[in-house]
């Protein structure tokens, strides 16, 4: 399942620098995404994990330029195919969305228009970028795509409506629309969360095969660390709108360096430890994104820094560290110390 990433290729498929997104209401400004930077290599699979409200979905929509008022992207660069798409107008972005970056959303029940046939919705994805395409050719392509996502009798099912498909099938249709034009980047926002476990595994396996075949890089947004370990090459842990730890998957599972990553990992149910009592949970709540503390956003809940004045006063900068299972970038004052501790 691991993909050999081509280290000799220096150009990332997608490069995000200092991206910030705010929602401006009368009373307060919510900082949903704060100064986020990361690179996505061609064919890399990056998992972004975090609690609800940590800004994962806002990050996905920001990259696609789909933040709706009162929200807006407040700053940053999004380099894709050699240009900064954050500077493009909405109309210009139209030729990027779907063709170079595609989107798969969480809930397949609401991701398809209930009153349009599946065929029309797939053809729409193709025709948006190939205006001269003939109807019959578009239909043939759509049927092929349905076959690609392992839906049988594709030709007939094109004329059916979303309510005639099961949840897993609908998500396959959404994936078919997303890969229709061989995008170089696919952003999947919790693509399997709304599905039952068996269907989850099938959809994930399908996604795995397709992004391999289409040579697509993936940003997989999820709160399920199990899916990350199975599917991703690298992982970014998001907390209060920032990426607090970015590394290869091995590093996160072997020596999570940020105290939040460690806490998140401790919350994953482990069958061997279930007998030992209730599942651990991270004490406290994520901070209010409209009035953030001046120091580390995790400090009030942090088992390490809760009582350390520096953590409450000074926002930690990204520290590049090298752990036993590979390098990582960690936003914590104690990153190096914790790595040393873990290596002992």
């Amino acid at each position: 399942m691991t993909v050999t990433t081509d280290a000799s290729s220096p150009d990332p498929a997608l490069s995000v620098r200092n991206l910030s997104t705010v929602y401006e209401a009368k009373a307060a400004t919510v900082h949903a995404v704060r100064d986020v930077s990361f690179d996505l290599r061609p064919m890399e699979r990056l998992g972004i994990v975090g609690e609800s409200g940590s800004g994962k979905s806002a990050l996905a929509l920001s990259i696609l330029g789909l933040i709706e008022p009162p929200g807006r992207v407040a700053g940053g660069e999004i380099m894709l195919g050699g240009r900064d798409i954050a500077k493009l107008s909405d109309r210009e972005l139209g030729s990027v969305r779907g063709k170079e970056i595609a989107l798969v959303l969480q809930d397949p029940a609401t991701a398809l228009d209930p009153v349009k046939t599946i065929g029309r919705q797939i053809i729409e994805a193709i025709a948006a970028h190939e205006p001269g395409l003939k109807r019959s050719a578009a239909r043939r392509r759509a049927a092929e795509l349905l076959g690609d996502v392992e839906i049988s009798h594709a030709e007939q099912r094109l004329d059916e409506y979303p309510h005639q498909f099961s949840g897993g099938m609908r998500q396959r249709v959404v994936i078919a629309m997303a890969i229709a034009l061989n995008p170089s980047v696919l952003i999947a926002d919790e693509p399997t969360t709304a599905l039952d476990v068996t269907t989850q595994a099938q959809v994930l396996a399908l996604l795995d095969r397709l992004v391999d075949e289409h040579r697509t890089a993936v940003i997989l947004i999820t709160h399920n660390l199990g899916i990350v370990s199975e599917f991703c090459d690298s992982v970014a842990v998001m907390y209060a709108g920032r990426l607090v730890e970015t590394s290869g998957v091995d590093h996160i599972f072997e020596s999570p360096t940020h105290p939040y990553s460690e806490a998140l990992l401790a919350c994953v149910p482990n069958p061997e430890k279930l007998a030992q009592g209730p599942l651990p949970a991270i004490a406290g709540y994520p901070p209010d994104l409209s009035s953030l503390p001046s120091g580390c956003a995790f400090a009030p809940r942090c088992p390490v820094g809760r009582d350390i004045p520096q953590c409450h006063q000074e926002a930690p900068q990204p520290h590049a560290v090298s752990g036993p299972a590979g390098p990582a970038v960690v936003e914590c004052h104690f990153a190096e110390a914790r790595i040393r501790e873990a290596s002992r």
């Binding site: 779907g98 959303l105 991701a111 209930p114 997303a178």
Partner: peptide, 24 residues
């Protein structure tokens, strides 16, 4: 979400609105 999905396909704002929001 299907409006976001339609926009994600690259449809202009008004087209997505007219085709998917209005009928629904």
């Amino acid at each position: 979400p299907f409006i976001t999905v339609a926009r994600g396909k690259g449809l202009p704002r008004w087209t997505a609105f007219r085709r998917h929001a209005l009928p629904n």
